[in-house]
Design a protein around this nucleic acid. Structure first.
Length: 293
DNA sequence: CCGCGGGCCTGAGAGC
DNA sequence: TGCTCTCAGGCCCGCG
């Protein structure tokens, strides 16, 4: 599922029931997800207050009063569902990911305020890991991540510099979390389309000979900002598994201009092209060969 | 450094 | 109805 907008949507849904609240109990319903749980996983969480819930790239980070940080990654199919205590919740219609039963609820947080937060992940590509805050800088999962695409450090100059001399494709460069952290297959396709840049274009062509950013770099950065902000506003994109923590669907998939639109007409004004799909670095790329150059 | 293929998992959808 | 095949918002590893 989840790229930055989906993870941010989940963060905003969990924040009110986690931040400043005490975890009463944690149930793990299997030995692990992608990796086995740490032996003291539940013990390091139970009974402690969550001071804050943040996000770095596609990771959720729960700051505990103990000085530990719980890192959570949703993999491809992870989702969280919040159930509020009797009388406090009136979330409308629930759309459960995949099965109606909760077979794939692998981790359940019982908050002292009565909220129950379930982590569901059919494919189990997600993971959770507790790291001491003092050791976060050395944490392999986070080390080497590039800047946040919506943060101040990410601009045309930074992107051009990171891409200078790269012979790899623009698509591959943007998917590389060391270049910029948080984009995935959908939003890379969408941002390239919106900036009229070909996914096949060599990444180095965002910079001039001195490594200075050109108009392509500036347009691409703008397109990334625009598409991510719009997707967050829409609660992310629900194709298969992504749900907001209320169970509601995200709806940015209705705003896709290229992703999942193979064979359909290009939406660029006056463009007569047709959206094509091909495989790049093992993933589907959707694009318009007519207006993306 | 790079691209590529395989692996990790389950489930949905298409085709037969 | 049911089989087989392909594909899926991520990411890591090893190969050449």
């Amino acid at each position: 599922m989840p790229e930055l907008p989906e993870v941010e949507t989940v963060r905003r849904g969990l924040q009110p029931v986690m931040e400043g609240q005490r975890i009463a109990r944690v149930d793990t319903r299997r030995d692990g997800l992608r990796f086995p749980f740490q032996k003291d996983f539940a013990a390091r969480l139970q009974g402690y207050v969550v001071n804050g819930l943040g996000r770095r790239a596609k990771y959720l980070m729960a700051d505990l009063e103990t000085g530990d940080v719980l890192l959570m990654h949703l993999g491809m199919s992870g989702s969280f569902r919040v159930t509020l205590p009797e009388g406090e919740s009136t979330p409308g219609e629930f759309h459960y990911p995949r099965s109606e039963d909760r077979t794939h609820d692998h981790v359940v947080f019982h908050m002292q305020n009565g909220a129950v937060i379930s982590f569901n992940d059919p494919r189990r590509f997600g993971y959770m890991k507790i790291v001491a805050r003092a050791e976060l800088d050395a944490e392999p999962l986070l080390k080497g991540l590039g800047p946040e695409p919506l943060g101040n450090a990410f601009d045309a100059a930074m992107l051009a510099h990171a891409c200078a001399g790269k012979k790899t494709s623009l698509k591959a460069a943007l998917l590389d979390q060391r270049v910029v952290a948080g984009l995935g297959n959908i939003y890379v396709c969408e941002a390239l389309f919106r900036s009229h840049l070909s996914p096949k274009r060599q990444a180095s062509t965002l910079a001039d000979r001195k490594g200075e950013p050109n108009d392509r770099a500036r347009h691409l950065v703008t397109a990334i900002h625009t598409v991510l902000n719009a997707a967050i506003k829409a609660g992310g994109s629900s194709l298969r598994d992504h749900r907001q923590t209320s169970g509601e669907l995200g709806y940015f998939q209705h705003s896709f201009l290229v992703y999942d639109r193979e064979g359909e007409p290009c939406k660029t004004p006056k463009c007569t092209g047709t959206i094509k799909r091909f495989t790049q670095n093992g993933r589907s790329t959707f694009w318009c060969p007519v207006c993306q150059k």
